[in-house]
Design a protein around this nucleic acid. Sequence first.
DNA 1: ATAAAATACCACCTTTTTGTAGCATATAAA
DNA 2: TTTATATGCTACAAAAAGGTGGTATTTTAT
Lengths: 138, 138
Amino acid sequence: MILNKTTEYSLAVLGYMAVSQDDIFSAEFLHHELKIPRRYLRKLLTDLSKLGFILSTKGRNGGFAFARPLGEINLAAIIKTVEGSELMESCILGHQSCKEEQPCVMHETWLEAKTKMLEALSNTTLHDLRERKKAKSD
Amino acid sequence: MILNKTTEYSLAVLGYMAVSQDDIFSAEFLHHELKIPRRYLRKLLTDLSKLGFILSTKGRNGGFAFARPLGEINLAAIIKTVEGSELMESCILGHQSCKEEQPCVMHETWLEAKTKMLEALSNTTLHDLRERKKAKSD
DNA sequence: ATAAAATACCACCTTTTTGTAGCATATAAA
DNA sequence: TTTATATGCTACAAAAAGGTGGTATTTTAT
């Protein structure tokens, strides 16, 4: 496993919202578009708003919209925030004591692997996704 | 989550065996050294031998030893094999239909991220770990 | 032969993750 | 002010992952 379902869903939701023309999305609409289980999605959207990515509007024409400029949100940040940032710090072998001074046998390789991966993910913001989408449809 | 416990344990076991001087290891010994739950470890070792990384010897002085030269086993291969290789192929959004021709919005970035990560992991074999360990203790 | 020390198999328990249900609350259109 | 359509909260159910236990089987030192 690389990412769990919840993280996958989070990326799918925010990615979809980013490349879409609309700017407010109801849970029901996103459920229909993304095939994420209705109730689970609603809870996830609530969580994402608590985490500061989106904000919710209640009432008849309510829904969810981005809380911050798209350029400020990169993919690594989404993953780290949703998963609770056990990403950068964690040792591949799960050792508590694995640090630079007293590294595990795989420390060096794992550090390089995750650094490279996170570099790629931090280099892409939701704004970038939107631009790419635009470029394609031209 | 990046890797699940089972994968973490697999890397810990094979990594430990690789850098150690011995060449046969009982489950009980590995349990003691690595603090992996006794029974779970035994099942895991059975699995790892079915997957072809190690081979088991029954009986009084039995245990587990590598089935192949250390230089042939790299870290990416361990992860892929243990996790069932949903690693390279998988779409970050979990889409079945996500391919080069019809990519999801994050396809490009995700491909780069996982490629970079797997590059680093495939570049390190168990033999490399052993050499690094030796170099340090000199 | 026999007992010790190892793996192998099968079923079950616990914890975490994922998914569901009901009801409460808020808001805007009519 | 009523009603339709949203989200919010709390608790629970199902599935997957992680972990345990008992017993059988294999092998080798004694």
